[in-house]
Amino acid sequence: MTGTDGEQKGRNKTDILGLAGFGAFLIILGSTFAAKPNLVDEIREMILDLRLEELYPGIFFPAPQSSFPIIYNALLQICIGMFAVSVAILAIRLSARQPIKMGAESLGDAVFWACAAGIASMMVAGSANVLMVMGYFLASIGASMIIRSAIVLGYSYLFGR
């Protein structure tokens, strides 16, 4: 194999586990819709129920006026399912001794889905308003990014790689 071939191979190499994660996401999403046949109608109702809500003086954001526990429960199930998938992918990556960067990504995904499950459970309990959902969602993305970057940077700082 020539150097060019090797470079080409590296560029074309697909992250199989990442692809498997996306497949699992579609399966979880599909089975959630299959298990709750009225979910589509509920989503339609929720969209029709959206009204502009004043978050801050002069700042409006669309929010549903009623509670939709079926949708929130479905969201919770999807988040828990994806959290389990992320943890499984992380375990496989660690056991296969894959590069730390990929492990950090899987751990970041797991943290994001765990936080999202927490937000969804607050929505199910009815203890979250629009601001809290938006805020915690942003904080979840931030926490996931911090985990990914901190692990890669910490590893490269400690081991000089």
């Binding site: 805020g135 969602f137 904080a139 931030g142 990014m145 901190a150």
Partner: peptide, 23 residues
């Protein structure tokens, strides 16, 4: 590496902003 530093900085910013909004 610098991408990861920016990722870390942006992540901290998002986390603080999100917590401020939520509270």
């Amino acid at each position: 590496r610098s991408g990861n530093v920016w990722g870390l900085a942006f992540g901290i910013f998002l986390l603080l902003l999100g917590l401020a909004i939520a509270s």
